[in-house]
Design a protein around this nucleic acid. Sequence first.
DNA 1: CCACAATACATAACGTTGCTATGTTCTGAG
DNA 2: CTCAGAACATAGCAACGTTATGTATTGTGG
Lengths: 229, 229
Amino acid sequence: MVRVKDPAVRSLLIDRAAQMLAAREPVTLRSLVAGTGVSTMAVYTYFDGMDGLWRAVRQEGFTRLAARLAAVPPSADPVRDLAALGAAYLANALDGPDLYRVMFDAAFGLEDAAAADDTLHRLVRGVERATAAGRLRDDVDPLELAAQSWTIGHGLASLVATGPLPRRALAHGVPLLTALFAGAGDDPVRCRRSVERGWRPLLPGSRSGSADSGFSDAGPAGTAPEDVT
Amino acid sequence: MVRVKDPAVRSLLIDRAAQMLAAREPVTLRSLVAGTGVSTMAVYTYFDGMDGLWRAVRQEGFTRLAARLAAVPPSADPVRDLAALGAAYLANALDGPDLYRVMFDAAFGLEDAAAADDTLHRLVRGVERATAAGRLRDDVDPLELAAQSWTIGHGLASLVATGPLPRRALAHGVPLLTALFAGAGDDPVRCRRSVERGWRPLLPGSRSGSADSGFSDAGPAGTAPEDVT
DNA sequence: CCACAATACATAACGTTGCTATGTTCTGAG
DNA sequence: CTCAGAACATAGCAACGTTATGTATTGTGG
């Protein structure tokens, strides 16, 4: 009586959708199933239509993000780790800008809301570590500071990955996070060094080079090592 | 030989599209022209298709934003004015979340790129005023600080207007901007007061109350008057 | 072990989408 | 006044997501 749907087909379709998304090919019902052997009805058996598919893709996006954040190794410097978390967040967004966009497409809900919360919770724990280490004033609410860090990360990701700012604007992350954490109690110069260390993996040329253009000239953000101390 | 197209029809369609967008009705070619007396071909005569219409709508979004920013009266406190600019930016985004989204839909270009640059340039001038008034260190690049303020504004707008953060998360703008400007040289307590003044119009209940939900509990950001000084 | 019932899946059709082709109306310069 | 060309309406096209219908497959109760 109970037939179990093949999970392999599910993840096959999700992966293929994410892949087509990354390749900037239009993801349509028919183009999605073309070449997979399954018919268009599979999308309805497994996802209840395209909306369900997008919901699943959105979920997959958060899963990948969580994996990225989990891969950040904790060091002895919790502030550096916070910046590294932000850098990992941005690296994930830049790796798949289109996937990142559907992640924040409010039109579709999430299948497992806890997966999305996990993103923020990991940041919260990072802040708590920094507070426990005495780097931050102990009256700062970890949840608030985490949300503020997220705001900076998402703003940067949104403007760079899918927006008008050029890739070198990623360098803004350093002064922004430095100002935030220093404002939360960390020693300014020490904070700057920690953030720079955590942010470093994002700057050189670690990953895919998407060619952004910007509105016209959104500003040289690459070279200005001293504006916030 | 030269027939001039009626500009009234143009703005009629743009306004109607923006209106339908705000009403969360799907904007389709046929639904757009329905009831206007013009036929579907008008969209092609005036906009060269739907893509052109979206481009025009995007432009309209930036025009409205520019008008909002221009309506911010300069005061004697340039840092307060910077925060007020950010508040106006967010108020505009919250007034029409869907319009705000298409503004940053990179799929369509802009007809007049200068209109978009105007947004950033107004911020740049605000920073220059603050520097000239001696509130900021004079080695800060106005363009950079403006871009960083924009990052905060866009991150907050994106996460609140069309994302998972509840409306009360707007309060994060105060500590974020305070940290940024204080990090750029302003006196911390004075900065805080200035930012709070500029940000105030956003907080009470000045405009439309959209019912956001958040992932599950994205954090109480409403009451914490002292975390950054 | 077998027959039944429900699920999984394929095929075909439906309504709607953006768009184009064709024909008609109207404008404005020569 | 004439007529080339722009503006516009109507009709039709391929492609989209979805639904309806029919077939195959599978787990289980008799």
